[in-house]
Computed example of a mutant assay.
Amino acid sequence: MNAFSSYAQQHDSGISHQLPDNLNYLCDINLEKPHFLIEGILPRNGLSAIVGPSYCYKTFIALDMALSVAACLPFHEMDTQQGTVIYVNGEGRYGIMTRINAWCQSKSLDPKRLPFILSKSPINLRDPAELAKLLDIYQNIPDVRLIVIDTLNRNAGGMNENAPVDMAEFVNACSSMVHHFDCAVCVIHHTGKDTSSGARGHSSFYAALDTEISVKKLGDHDVQMICSKQKDAPEFETMQFIAVSTLDSIILEKTETRKANSKNKLTADQKLALECLQELIEANTATNGDVAGKNVHLDKWRHEFKRRHTGDNDKSKNTAHQRARNTLVSLKFVEVKDDFYSLGDKTT
Rank of each mutant, 00 (worst) to 15 (best):
I251C: 06
L47I: 10
M177K: 11
T319Y: 06
P111W: 01
F4Q: 12
C276E: 05
A156K: 00
T151I: 02
F340W: 00
L67V: 08
D110V: 05
T327S: 12
H309F: 02
V296P: 00
L26F: 09
C104L: 03
I96F: 06
D232E: 15
D312Q: 13
L298A: 12
N124C: 12
T347S: 03
I15T: 13
L209P: 13
T191F: 02
V88M: 14
F116N: 02
Y7G: 03
V244G: 03
I29F: 10
V144P: 01
S106G: 13
V291R: 12
K193W: 10
G344L: 00
E237R: 14
E130W: 01
M225A: 05
T98V: 07
P142R: 05
Y7K: 06
I41K: 03
D232V: 12
P128E: 07
G92K: 09
H179R: 14
A283M: 15
C72P: 05
A66N: 05
T59K: 07
P43T: 09
M159V: 04
Y206I: 15
N288G: 05
F236N: 08
K306G: 02
C72I: 09
E212F: 13
P115E: 07
K229A: 14
A199N: 10
N264D: 14
L114S: 02
L328R: 01
A102L: 09
A199Q: 12
T310V: 04
F116C: 08
T347M: 01
K229H: 14
A66R: 07
A243L: 09
K271H: 13
Y87D: 08
S204W: 10
Q139N: 10
D127C: 07
H189M: 12
I123K: 13
E282C: 06
G157V: 04
L19M: 14
V296I: 11
I96K: 07
I50M: 00
G344D: 01
P34K: 11
A168H: 03
S330R: 00
